[in-house]
Nucleic acid binder design. Structure first.
Lengths: 117, 117
DNA sequence: TATACTATATACTTTATGCATATAGTATAA
DNA sequence: TTATACTATATGCATAAAGTATATAGTATA
């Protein structure tokens, strides 16, 4: 059934989140998922497959670079770090997110002004 | 080429905008497009086809109801008005948009805190 | 030996939106 | 008269984001 924000949850929203986290420190898919689900970046948990897909897509576009690291416990990890191109893309994303916020505000304001009449 | 917000511009974003405008007063596709493009609800103009498609989809789900009106100048217009079910859906949308706004803020805040260090 | 947790990846599906195009009435300028 | 522009609605095809399901594999523990 249809419900607000169920699909196409915001056009690259995950990409913006991941770049932001990777700017702070290099990390890998599984850990990034846990960060996303605890840092107040998401309303509902992201599906892990979406994160892996986004990371690979960003690597193709040279926004991030990856290398494998051995792990004493559990399977190997593919570590990602943000590139210069990625930093530039993140800057664009932040500009976009701020603009988006203003649009959201415009609609919410309109709605609430109608309820005061 | 990929760019922030180019596709899937926000998962039903238009639906929320249209319901909000129709709550204010009944209207029709072409006029709603002009409103959207001037009221600060959108960063870039929406394609008109998206509006017509959304209106028909909402009518299927009984969020709006339509009737044809003759026009002295130009072709007939399909007028839409919001239903009770639509008002309820709009309320949900507003709740969702507010939550979304907080998420956007969380990412922007994180980004800006990194630039102060 | 079975189960849970960590870790990565891909195939298939659903939804939103963009772009192109079709139809048609009215108004106006060449 | 014809062409162009504007108003108005609608549909087909393409593209992209995200959801769901499933597969693989190492480690830890009961």
């Amino acid at each position: 059934m249809f419900q607000p924000g169920r699909y196409g949850r915001g056009s690259g929203w995950i990409e913006a989140c991941l770049l932001c986290l990777l700017k702070e420190e290099k990390s890998y898919g599984y850990s990034l998922m846990e960060k996303l689900n605890t840092l107040g970046f998401t309303a509902e948990p992201f599906n892990i497959s979406v994160i892996y897909r986004n990371l690979r897509s960003m690597e193709k576009r040279r926004l991030v670079a990856s290398f494998w690291t051995a792990s004493e416990r559990g399977p190997d990890k593919r570590m990602y770090e943000i590139t210069q191109k990625g930093e530039k893309a993140l800057k664009e994303w932040i500009r976009f997110l701020k603009k988006r916020q203003k649009l959201l505000q415009a609609v919410v304001d309109k709605y609430e002004s109608m309820h005061l009449e």
